[in-house]
Every structure is written in structure tokens, then in C-alpha cells.
Design a protein around this nucleic acid. Structure first.
Lengths: 338, 338
DNA sequence: CTGTTAGCGCGTTCAC
DNA sequence: GTGAACGCGCTAACAG
């Protein structure tokens, strides 16, 4: 790559001073129309592209908001990324997305890379990074976190989380209301807060409804499809009287669905099934899967706006993400109810 | 954000000159161990983070590879993003991802933003940007394109594309081989090259097999699920003797699947179904969907390596992406075959 | 309105 | 080994 054209070269070509070119580029001050035209021509002729580094160095601001995502290919977090993009649009800021692959070391590396690039704000999606490290960053710049509980109040940051426990409770209560009495749960990995909360919600809902919690009705998966398939088989072996399954996420529900299909069991006639997360595909499974939707895009957008607001010194308006039960066709009523 | 600590502040704190600190940071030259230790302490104490802008400005290299993706939330292209990440890993380069939302204007804006940030290479995934603009960029830096046909040879770039036509032919030939004689096609939007090629492959396969191509067996969709659902219904109304469907992508196949489900038609017993793209979910639909897999991650990784190689002045080894027929359980044999 | 001057934070000669 | 001086490309005061 041949050395790029500089602003002063443009200035020389147009017969004006560098500052004039700068002023035209930034609209910082009114300039003579004639000169403006000449400068534009020179820019065109030389194929000038402004150097963002030099600019940032001089102005002291990067125009970048860092985004740390656990996985660039996660359908779940990517909705949040879309929201962040939308929230940043037209603000003059652009996102710099780095993924941490759920590994603390990589996440820390990513954050320091972002700090090196002088991001002016940071949005963290999920991940494993220790709370105190997040707070350290939050002390320096506006930070918004999505999908994990971090106390950032004293540091001037926010964490948007969903009430996994409550939603799980709602889901299971719904199943009970439809007449189900023997409800299995395919849980997520128990070192994961969300997974624990969803299991807790399941248990609490059962007890609130006067049903006994039985450990044998729970199998643990890893949030991936295969574990849902295996879990379903195990559950079926243990409890022939099972009529409904609550999977801790949609992916495992898909796995369970396939296990049932292979056994010739119909959903929802023979077995009701319910998931969590409402992946884009879930409205087109057969039958469409009931699940709970987290407004990832809205949350992402709000976080972007939050960071921008803080950058402008505004006090942000609060936001309460609302999870939504997406009731579709994967649950049937059992006779003998009510 | 309080002004960040600079290198010279570290130098002063450690009682050495800025250049010494720089040398230690970069390992550019051997320095006294004692001083090195003092500098490290100063860095620690002051919480110094290096300014990537100043560094890039001084060195003249950004360490960034730009990535233009049509949609940050597309499951299809995101596999490629993962591959790019992997390909860049450990190279000292990091990706800067911007999405163009399938809009030419936004894409152009994104590219100029990347150019401003002095990316040293560029990877373009799909999109709508005119070929000549891509060539213009390719004349300045290493460019790799994925998923669209662009002639970049004379500009020193590559475009990785898949043979959609051939794969579609293989798929349809496979259906015919399994005894199907009346095969419907839900096509993609015909202003889209991939969609056209897949339709052509369908048609050619039919003719090669001695079956007549009938326009009434084709309905046009838009690559989204709902259009697959509607298309399926329309096809069924026109041709009661239909035994198999080739959908131009998996998403439409999902829609078709649901339409069949609602009508009480079984897959594959009553209707065989086949898609294209092999989305992550397709191995867990009921039944698992036959499709054709494009090695997006591998292609992304290769492109990253390609760009890095060009940056180092190497001549890249060629790469022929191979599509793979993923034959699963959504196709049945019809009696009377062979 | 416009040109001149002085940095922004860092890497890199070039002398010592 | 190490420091001083200069420049990377641009913006922002400061005069005019």
C-alpha cells in the first residue's frame, strides 16, 4: 500500500493552508466558497482519505464504543449487537466488537485491546470476566452490561439483567395450569447463573402449585442440542408418566424434540415441550415452540443509548426489560385439569 | 474520563527517557534489567495503557483488518466471522467489523470508515457494493470477498464463491435418484445471483434426468420462512401429485415444513423436503433436514490467512471451497424407482 | 475568513 | 545501552 495522501498535500494542491482544509472537512468554521470548491476538487483528484488516528490523537476522542461479546456467532447475543448498532447509528460513534469466547483470559485481553484503542464507552455482553475488573473499567468510562448481575451503581454503570427465575416460574406455572403434573426439567450447566435461576424457578413454581420437587425429574445439560436429546431419553427412562418438559433453553428443547420424534412421540399430543430464549427458529419448529423471549435487541439499543447519554453528561432514564412468554403450539392441555 | 497516562509520564516516574520505555514496551532493543523493572513498576503504579492511535500514527500501521458483513446478526455470515477471527488469531491483527445491512449506501459508508481507520486489509462478505468499487479498494490493499462473483485477479484480490448451480443440480438429481418425479421448487428472489443459480441447477437437473421443467412447479420466495410456508401451500394447490420439494434455502424449507405439518402431511413419508445452506438448526429439525453445507467458517479463516499472507508479501496458495451434501432424514424413496 | 504555530502520544533515527 | 530531537497527520488556539 503506497503511502496515503495527507491533508497538507491536499492543502498544497488546492493552494490553501492545512487548517482551511481541516475546517472544510469538519465544518468547524465558514470558509470562502471558492476555496471550498478547490479543496473538494483536490480531495477528489488526490483520492484523499482522512486519517482517523491522527484525528483522534489531535482531538482526544476516538468516536468508538467497545463491545465485548462472548461469541461473534451466537444467535442469542447477536440480536443485542444489532440493537447496539441501531442505538449508535447517527451518533458519530461506531462500535468495535471483540469476542472473548467465554474465556476470562481472552476477555481481559479484549478489554485491554479496547482500552488501547481508547474506546469512550464499553458494552459487555455476558461473559466470565470478574466483577471487580468490570468495575475498574467502569470507574474510567461509561460501562453497560447485559445479561449478568454486576453491581455498578457506585461506579456509574448499569447492568441489565432478566429475571430468569420469575420467567421460569411463569412457564412452569403455565404448564401446571394446563393440567400437567409430572413435568421434567432439562437444566443448563449449573455453574451458569442463568441456568441456576431457571432451575430455581422450576422448583419454586412446582412447590407453589403444591407439587413435590423430585430430583429425578431433572437432568443436566449444557445448553446445546445434543444434551437435550440425551436428557430427554434419560428422563423418559426414569418417568414413563411424564407429560411435559421444560428445557432451560431452546437449543436443548430442539434436542428433546428430536428425541421424541425418533421415539414416535408427538408434540404436544403425547408430550408438551417448552423452551427458553425464543431463538429466531423457534416460531418455525414443528410445532412452533413455546418459549420466553428476552428483548435482546431493545436492550442492546438501550445500552448504546445509555453509554452515549453518559458521554454527553446526561442522566439516563431507567429501563426495565420485560421478558415475554411466547405461547405457541408445543403445549397441550391434559384432561382432568381444574 | 480523566486524561490517560502517557508514556512520558511513565518515563518520568521511572526516571528514564521516553525512548527507553518505548524500547521496553516493544522489545526493540536490550535494556538494563534494573531500568526495565522500574519501568514495569511505574506502568503498574500509574495504570498506563498504551495509546494505539499514537502508536499507529508513528509506525504507520494499524494492525486492523476490516470486515464488511451484510448483517451482524446473520447466522449464515457469522460463521464466516468466526472463521475470520480464528484466522487472524495470534497474528497481531484484529478485525474491525461493520455491517452494511444490504444497502449499497451503508456499505460504501462502512468501507470509507474502514479506510479512514487505515485498515491494512479488507474482507467483504456478500453485499451489494458495485464491483468496480471493490476493485478500487483492491487496488490499494489486499481484499478478499466471500459469496459473490467479483473479478479481482488484475487487482490482486480473491473472491471465494460456491457453485450454487452444481449443488442444486446434485440435490435435485439425488431426489430423482430416490424415485421422485414431481419435484417442486421454492426459489429465492430472482435479483439474487445465488437464487438464480439454484433455480438454474434445479431446471438443468430435471432436464438431464429426462423430466420436463414446468414453471408451475416453481414458486418464488424471499429466503424468509413465511415465504416458504406460503409457497408450499401454493405448490400443493397446483400439484396434488407432488412428492418432493427443493427449497432454495433452509429458512424457506422450515416454512414449508411447518405448512406440511399444519396440513397433517408427514416428512418424509408424504413429502420429501430438501433445503440449502445447512443452518446450524437443520440437524435438529424434525426430521433433520437434508441440505447443502457451505464451509463458511473455513472460508472465512482462509480469507483471513490470505489477507495476512498478502500483507507479508507471500503468494497465497489456492483454495477451493467444497460444498457438502448433508443427507439426513427428510427425503424418502418412492416406490417404482429405478 | 484564513494562515501560522504548537502540540496530541509514540517510534525512531542519530549521536553519545 | 540510552537520551535528545524529529516527525507521523491532524486539530485548535492564536494572530491577523
Amino acid at each position: 500500500m503506497t503511502r496515503a495522501v495527507t491533508l497538507s498535500e491536499v492543502a498544497r494542491e488546492a493552494g490553501v493552508s492545512p487548517s482551511t482544509v481541516s475546517r472544510i472537512l469538519n465544518g468547524t468554521a465558514r470558509v470562502n466558497d471558492d476555496k471550498a470548491r478547490q479543496v473538494r476538487q483536490a480531495i477528489e483528484k488526490l483520492g484523499y482519505t482522512r486519517n482517523a488516528f491522527a484525528r483522534s490523537l489531535a482531538t482526544g476522542s476516538s468516536g468508538i464504543v467497545g463491545v465485548l461479546t462472548p461469541d461473534i456467532a451466537s444467535p442469542f447475543y447477536n440480536d443485542a449487537l444489532s440493537g447496539i448498532e441501531r442505538g449508535l447509528m447517527g451518533s458519530g460513534f461506531s462500535p468495535l466488537i471483540i469476542s472473548g469466547h467465554w474465556r476470562t483470559g481472552e476477555e481481559e485481553h479484549a478489554v485491554s485491546l479496547l482500552l488501547n484503542r481508547r474506546v469512550e464507552g464499553l458494552i459487555i455482553l455476558g461473559g466470565q470476566m470478574p466483577d471487580h475488573e468490570i468495575r475498574e473499567v467502569a470507574a474510567r468510562l461509561p460501562v453497560g452490561v447485559l445479561g449478568r448481575e454486576v453491581d455498578l451503581k457506585d461506579w456509574g454503570g448499569v447492568a441489565l439483567t432478566m429475571d430468569n427465575r420469575q420467567s421460569a416460574r411463569d412457564l412452569v406455572t403455565y404448564l401446571v395450569g394446563r393440567g400437567h403434573r409430572v413435568i421434567g426439567h432439562i437444566s443448563g450447566p449449573q455453574d451458569h447463573t442463568d441456568a441456576r435461576d431457571r432451575l430455581r424457578g422450576y422448583r419454586e413454581a412446582l412447590e407453589e402449585c403444591g407439587l413435590r420437587f423430585q430430583p429425578s425429574l431433572v437432568v443436566q445439560g449444557d445448553f446445546q442440542e445434543p444434551s437435550g436429546l440425551i436428557g430427554m431419553q434419560r428422563l423418559l427412562n426414569r418417568h414413563a408418566d411424564l407429560t411435559a418438559i421444560f428445557a432451560a433453553n431452546d437449543q436443548m428443547a430442539y434436542g428433546a424434540r428430536l428425541a421424541l420424534h425418533r421415539l414416535g412421540l408427538r408434540v404436544p399430543e403425547d408430550m408438551s415441550l417448552i423452551g427458553f430464549d425464543d431463538l429466531p427458529g423457534s416460531s418455525y419448529t414443528t410445532p412452533p415452540l413455546s418459549s420466553v423471549r428476552q428483548p435482546m435487541a431493545e436492550m442492546g439499543q438501550w445500552l448504546a443509548r445509555y453509554v452515549l447519554g453518559r458521554l454527553r453528561g446526561e442522566t439516563p432514564e431507567p429501563f426495565a426489560p420485560r421478558q415475554e412468554l411466547m405461547l405457541r403450539e408445543s403445549v397441550a392441555s391434559r384432561r382432568g385439569t381444574h
